[in-house]
Amino acid sequence: MKLINPHVISEGGVQYPLGTLNGQCILYDFEKILVYLDAKGKLLFGKKFRIYEEDREVLFKLSNYQIRDWDMCKKLKIDLNKGLLLSGPVGCGKTSLMKLLRFITPHYQPYDVIPTRNIVFGFNHLGFKVMEQYGDHGFYCFDDLGVEPTGRHFGKDCNVMGEILLSRHELFTKTSGLNFKISKIVKTHATTNLNAQELEARYGNRVRSRMRELFNLVAFDKKTIDKRR
Protein backbone atom coordinates (compact mmCIF):
# COMPACT_ATOMS: atom_id res chain seq x y z
CA MET A 1 0.00 0.00 0.00
CA LYS A 2 1.39 3.39 -1.00
CA LEU A 3 1.70 5.87 1.85
CA ILE A 4 0.16 9.29 1.21
CA ASN A 5 2.63 11.13 3.47
CA PRO A 6 5.65 8.86 4.03
CA HIS A 7 7.59 11.83 5.44
CA VAL A 8 5.17 12.17 8.38
CA ILE A 9 5.30 9.35 10.93
CA SER A 10 2.81 8.90 13.76
CA GLU A 11 3.91 7.39 17.06
CA GLY A 12 1.60 7.23 20.07
CA GLY A 13 -0.71 9.87 18.68
CA VAL A 14 2.14 12.29 17.95
CA GLN A 15 3.10 13.18 14.38
CA TYR A 16 6.76 13.56 13.46
CA PRO A 17 7.38 15.30 10.11
CA LEU A 18 10.83 14.29 8.86
CA GLY A 19 10.85 16.87 6.10
CA THR A 20 8.61 18.36 3.44
CA LEU A 21 7.14 17.14 0.17
CA ASN A 22 8.31 18.73 -3.06
CA GLY A 23 6.15 17.09 -5.71
CA GLN A 24 6.96 13.39 -5.36
CA CYS A 25 10.27 14.03 -3.62
CA ILE A 26 10.82 14.27 0.13
CA LEU A 27 13.20 16.99 1.30
CA TYR A 28 14.41 15.49 4.57
CA ASP A 29 15.58 17.52 7.55
CA PHE A 30 18.35 15.78 9.52
CA GLU A 31 17.47 17.57 12.76
CA LYS A 32 13.85 16.37 12.49
CA ILE A 33 15.08 12.84 11.79
CA LEU A 34 17.08 12.98 15.03
CA VAL A 35 14.00 14.12 16.97
CA TYR A 36 12.03 11.19 15.60
CA LEU A 37 14.80 8.67 16.23
CA ASP A 38 15.05 9.83 19.83
CA ALA A 39 11.30 9.47 20.33
CA LYS A 40 11.11 6.09 18.60
CA GLY A 41 14.12 4.88 20.55
CA LYS A 42 12.43 5.68 23.84
CA LEU A 43 9.35 3.74 22.72
CA LEU A 44 11.41 0.71 21.69
CA PHE A 45 14.17 0.64 24.30
CA GLY A 46 12.86 2.62 27.27
CA LYS A 47 13.00 6.16 28.62
CA LYS A 48 16.74 6.03 29.25
CA PHE A 49 17.43 5.86 25.51
CA ARG A 50 18.77 9.04 23.93
CA ILE A 51 20.60 10.25 20.87
CA TYR A 52 24.17 11.22 21.78
CA GLU A 53 25.77 14.33 20.33
CA GLU A 54 29.00 12.45 19.64
CA ASP A 55 27.08 10.02 17.41
CA ARG A 56 25.85 12.72 14.99
CA GLU A 57 28.46 11.94 12.33
CA VAL A 58 27.56 8.25 12.27
CA LEU A 59 23.83 9.05 12.30
CA PHE A 60 24.27 11.53 9.46
CA LYS A 61 25.82 8.83 7.29
CA LEU A 62 23.24 6.21 8.25
CA SER A 63 20.32 8.58 7.71
CA ASN A 64 21.48 9.75 4.30
CA TYR A 65 21.96 6.15 3.26
CA GLN A 66 18.50 5.15 4.46
CA ILE A 67 16.69 8.04 2.75
CA ARG A 68 18.73 7.41 -0.42
CA ASP A 69 20.18 10.87 -0.80
CA TRP A 70 22.34 10.15 -3.84
CA ASP A 71 24.20 13.46 -3.88
CA MET A 72 25.10 13.44 -0.19
CA CYS A 73 26.05 9.75 -0.23
CA LYS A 74 28.36 10.42 -3.16
CA LYS A 75 30.09 13.11 -1.09
CA LEU A 76 30.29 10.71 1.84
CA LYS A 77 31.65 7.96 -0.46
CA ILE A 78 28.71 5.69 0.32
CA ASP A 79 27.46 3.34 -2.41
CA LEU A 80 23.68 3.07 -2.19
CA ASN A 81 23.74 -0.24 -4.06
CA LYS A 82 25.64 -1.84 -1.18
CA GLY A 83 24.55 -2.64 2.35
CA LEU A 84 25.89 -1.22 5.62
CA LEU A 85 28.51 -2.69 7.92
CA LEU A 86 28.26 -0.72 11.16
CA SER A 87 31.30 -1.30 13.36
CA GLY A 88 32.29 -0.05 16.77
CA PRO A 89 33.12 -0.99 20.35
CA VAL A 90 30.85 -3.06 22.56
CA GLY A 91 27.87 -1.06 23.83
CA CYS A 92 28.24 1.93 21.48
CA GLY A 93 24.68 1.51 20.18
CA LYS A 94 25.13 -0.29 16.85
CA THR A 95 22.22 -2.68 17.25
CA SER A 96 19.82 0.00 18.52
CA LEU A 97 20.61 2.33 15.62
CA MET A 98 20.18 -0.38 12.99
CA LYS A 99 16.86 -1.35 14.54
CA LEU A 100 15.77 2.30 14.49
CA LEU A 101 17.05 3.28 11.07
CA ARG A 102 14.49 1.28 9.10
CA PHE A 103 11.59 3.21 10.67
CA ILE A 104 12.43 6.55 9.03
CA THR A 105 11.48 5.20 5.60
CA PRO A 106 8.21 3.27 6.02
CA HIS A 107 7.72 3.37 2.23
CA TYR A 108 10.85 1.25 1.63
CA GLN A 109 11.23 -2.49 2.18
CA PRO A 110 12.44 -3.04 5.75
CA TYR A 111 15.19 -5.42 6.80
CA ASP A 112 15.08 -7.88 9.70
CA VAL A 113 17.73 -7.58 12.41
CA ILE A 114 18.88 -11.12 13.28
CA PRO A 115 21.53 -11.98 15.93
CA THR A 116 24.18 -14.15 14.30
CA ARG A 117 24.29 -16.44 17.34
CA ASN A 118 20.60 -17.26 16.78
CA ILE A 119 21.34 -18.22 13.19
CA VAL A 120 24.11 -20.57 14.31
CA PHE A 121 21.92 -22.09 17.03
CA GLY A 122 19.28 -22.67 14.37
CA PHE A 123 21.86 -24.37 12.16
CA ASN A 124 22.97 -26.61 15.01
CA HIS A 125 19.38 -27.78 15.45
CA LEU A 126 17.97 -27.76 11.92
CA GLY A 127 21.00 -27.98 9.67
CA PHE A 128 21.64 -26.51 6.25
CA LYS A 129 18.10 -25.33 5.56
CA VAL A 130 18.80 -22.48 8.01
CA MET A 131 21.69 -21.36 5.80
CA GLU A 132 19.42 -21.58 2.77
CA GLN A 133 16.85 -19.42 4.58
CA TYR A 134 19.27 -16.55 5.16
CA GLY A 135 20.95 -16.96 1.81
CA ASP A 136 17.67 -16.06 0.09
CA HIS A 137 16.30 -12.81 -1.33
CA GLY A 138 15.23 -11.37 2.05
CA PHE A 139 16.73 -8.16 3.44
CA TYR A 140 18.68 -8.80 6.64
CA CYS A 141 20.94 -7.11 9.15
CA PHE A 142 23.19 -9.69 10.78
CA ASP A 143 23.82 -8.47 14.31
CA ASP A 144 27.14 -9.09 16.11
CA LEU A 145 28.88 -10.54 13.09
CA GLY A 146 32.08 -12.37 13.91
CA VAL A 147 31.48 -13.30 17.54
CA GLU A 148 29.01 -16.13 16.90
CA PRO A 149 30.18 -19.68 17.72
CA THR A 150 31.19 -22.19 15.07
CA GLY A 151 28.21 -24.18 13.83
CA ARG A 152 28.04 -27.91 14.38
CA HIS A 153 25.41 -30.21 12.92
CA PHE A 154 25.62 -34.00 13.12
CA GLY A 155 29.28 -33.81 14.07
CA LYS A 156 30.28 -31.54 11.20
CA ASP A 157 31.70 -28.08 11.93
CA CYS A 158 30.63 -25.20 9.71
CA ASN A 159 31.46 -21.50 9.53
CA VAL A 160 27.77 -20.69 9.15
CA MET A 161 27.92 -16.93 8.71
CA GLY A 162 30.87 -17.18 6.35
CA GLU A 163 28.85 -19.45 4.07
CA ILE A 164 25.79 -17.21 4.31
CA LEU A 165 27.85 -14.15 3.38
CA LEU A 166 29.15 -15.95 0.29
CA SER A 167 25.55 -16.75 -0.71
CA ARG A 168 24.46 -13.18 -0.04
CA HIS A 169 27.32 -11.88 -2.18
CA GLU A 170 26.29 -14.13 -5.06
CA LEU A 171 22.72 -12.81 -4.88
CA PHE A 172 23.96 -9.23 -4.62
CA THR A 173 26.17 -9.67 -7.67
CA LYS A 174 23.31 -11.11 -9.72
CA THR A 175 20.76 -8.45 -8.80
CA SER A 176 23.11 -5.45 -8.96
CA GLY A 177 24.43 -6.60 -12.33
CA LEU A 178 21.04 -6.77 -14.02
CA ASN A 179 20.26 -3.04 -13.89
CA PHE A 180 17.61 -3.72 -11.27
CA LYS A 181 16.00 -0.78 -9.49
CA ILE A 182 17.81 -0.10 -6.22
CA SER A 183 14.78 -1.41 -4.30
CA LYS A 184 15.23 -4.82 -5.97
CA ILE A 185 18.94 -5.25 -5.26
CA VAL A 186 19.44 -7.81 -2.49
CA LYS A 187 20.88 -5.86 0.42
CA THR A 188 22.79 -7.23 3.38
CA HIS A 189 23.58 -5.20 6.49
CA ALA A 190 25.57 -6.17 9.56
CA THR A 191 26.95 -4.89 12.85
CA THR A 192 30.28 -5.98 14.28
CA ASN A 193 32.71 -5.31 17.12
CA LEU A 194 35.61 -6.62 15.04
CA ASN A 195 38.04 -4.76 12.81
CA ALA A 196 39.01 -5.77 9.26
CA GLN A 197 41.91 -7.96 10.37
CA GLU A 198 39.78 -9.76 12.95
CA LEU A 199 37.00 -10.36 10.42
CA GLU A 200 39.49 -11.82 7.96
CA ALA A 201 40.91 -14.09 10.68
CA ARG A 202 37.36 -15.23 11.50
CA TYR A 203 36.08 -15.82 7.97
CA GLY A 204 39.15 -16.00 5.73
CA ASN A 205 40.40 -13.83 2.89
CA ARG A 206 37.78 -15.04 0.39
CA VAL A 207 34.82 -13.95 2.54
CA ARG A 208 36.57 -10.73 3.59
CA SER A 209 37.07 -9.86 -0.08
CA ARG A 210 33.35 -10.41 -0.77
CA MET A 211 32.47 -8.27 2.24
CA ARG A 212 34.25 -5.30 0.67
CA GLU A 213 31.86 -5.61 -2.26
CA LEU A 214 28.79 -6.21 -0.08
CA PHE A 215 29.17 -3.41 2.45
CA ASN A 216 29.77 0.26 3.04
CA LEU A 217 31.79 0.54 6.23
CA VAL A 218 30.43 3.03 8.75
CA ALA A 219 32.43 3.09 11.97
CA PHE A 220 32.06 4.54 15.42
CA ASP A 221 35.14 6.07 16.99
CA LYS A 222 37.17 3.46 18.89
CA LYS A 223 36.85 5.61 22.03
CA THR A 224 33.03 5.68 21.94
CA ILE A 225 31.65 5.04 25.43
CA ASP A 226 29.69 1.96 26.45
CA LYS A 227 26.17 3.39 26.67
CA ARG A 228 24.85 0.36 28.54
CA ARG A 229 26.81 1.19 31.68
Rank of each mutant, 00 (worst) to 15 (best):
K129E: 09
V130T: 09
V147R: 04
F123N: 02
R152P: 03
E163F: 14
E148R: 11
D143P: 03
V113T: 06
G151I: 06
I164V: 15
M161E: 08
D157M: 13
E148Q: 10
L100A: 02
D143F: 11
F154K: 07
Q109P: 13
H107T: 01
V120F: 10
K99E: 12
V130Q: 12
V160P: 07
T105E: 01
P110E: 06
K156W: 14
F121V: 01
M98Y: 08
Q109A: 13
F139N: 10
N124Y: 04
V130K: 09
C141V: 01
P110T: 01
K99F: 06
V160W: 10
D112S: 03
D144L: 02
P149E: 04
C141I: 00
V160F: 14
M131T: 12
Y134D: 06
D157K: 14
T116Q: 04
V113P: 03
D144W: 05
V120I: 10
L126M: 13
H137D: 13
P115C: 01
R152W: 01
I119S: 12
G146D: 12
F121N: 11
M161W: 12
C141L: 06
L101C: 00
N159M: 15
I164G: 12
P149F: 09
M161T: 09
L145Q: 08
N159E: 15
K156H: 13
